[in-house]
Design a protein around this nucleic acid. Structure first.
Lengths: 166, 166
DNA sequence: AAAGCAACCCCAATATCTAGGGGTAAGAGT
DNA sequence: ACTCTTACCCCTAGATATTGGGGTTGCTTT
């Protein structure tokens, strides 16, 4: 690991802690050469395959930007959006795939967005699922009425899995 | 490190390679529990302190978005922007700070942007440095004429430092 | 079509990291 | 004012990762 101070190529780990409930490891390193210290973070890779076929790292920011438009004039603040993006990331990581289709990201946004704000959810779904008529809206609304909000799979799953965690 | 497949908390490293010219380490891990494999990447932390005081991870995307506007109708493509953002990140990392003021990011953009396109550079500088009159433009133009393009410090520095690298 | 590159796979020795302990200090939240 | 949390500091023995070798495959780029 290159030292960001002197660019020497080698450094040793001084301290190491799991962080983010174990989904990443934070290390404190010391440059073998100049002795300066810096922090690093190790995270599971999560790449998104765009429709063009190109692949890029998952970005919470992009999720937020996509959803923000749907939240205009709605009681949704940046913290809500940040939390939503976190949940989406969680959901995607828990599928286990290292590479995920961009469309899957769109899908993963739906459940937590519904929990956050049903109006924003409708707007978002109308774009994402290509609503073409008033009936499409009505259909979705009927669905919303019929299906009670369920805790998104991520959470229910993690409740099953979590007993194994300390 | 939590397994993204089964969420078990422990995994072991199967393989480990420096990547990105040593600025990060890519590991292949195997879950102790379910045996599935996944990749991780360890990178030096680089946080940006926004004017609000909030801190967020550095994002090349944000740099690109900021510069793209200045590049309208200019012969600058996405690859150029990606390269520029990479250079900016490089420049910031080589300062050694783990946290950097948002303003520093703006500053770091200037030299590589000038190398890329002087028109875009002028536009960007006029916003970033709050030009208020035609004279400000003239002054900057005079400066550009006076100072030949110098390889940005990052590169000249790395040429000094690189002999130590293999 | 061939070369280059990035990710993937395997192995073995030793150097290095981790876990667990126990701390301090600063900032956010109540 | 106090608690919580996070980042920082230090220590040690045993467990684990790293390096360097070797190799495959598939995608870009020439």
């Amino acid at each position: 690991m290159i030292c960001p101070f002197c660019r020497y190529e080698d450094s040793r780990v001084i301290d190491s802690r799991p962080s983010d409930e174990g989904s990443s490891i934070r290390r404190r390193r010391e440059c073998t050469q100049c002795g300066s210290r810096f922090s690093t973070s190790e995270t599971a890779v999560l790449s998104i395959i765009k429709r063009s076929g190109a692949t890029e790292p998952f970005s919470r920011e992009k999720v937020i930007n996509g959803v923000r438009k749907a939240c205009q004039n709605r009681p949704v603040d940046d913290d809500d959006l940040a939390l939503l993006a976190m949940r989406v990331e969680e959901a995607l990581r828990s599928t286990g795939q290292a590479e995920i289709e961009a469309q899957e990201v769109g899908m993963a946004i739906l459940p937590p967005l519904r929990e956050l704000d049903e109006v924003a959810y409708l707007r978002y779904a109308s774009v994402y699922r290509n609503f073409s008529s008033l009936e499409d809206f009505e259909g979705e609304i009927a669905l919303l009425r019929a299906l009670p909000i369920e805790k998104s799979e991520i959470e229910s799953e993690s409740q099953v899995a979590s007993p194994q965690l300390k």
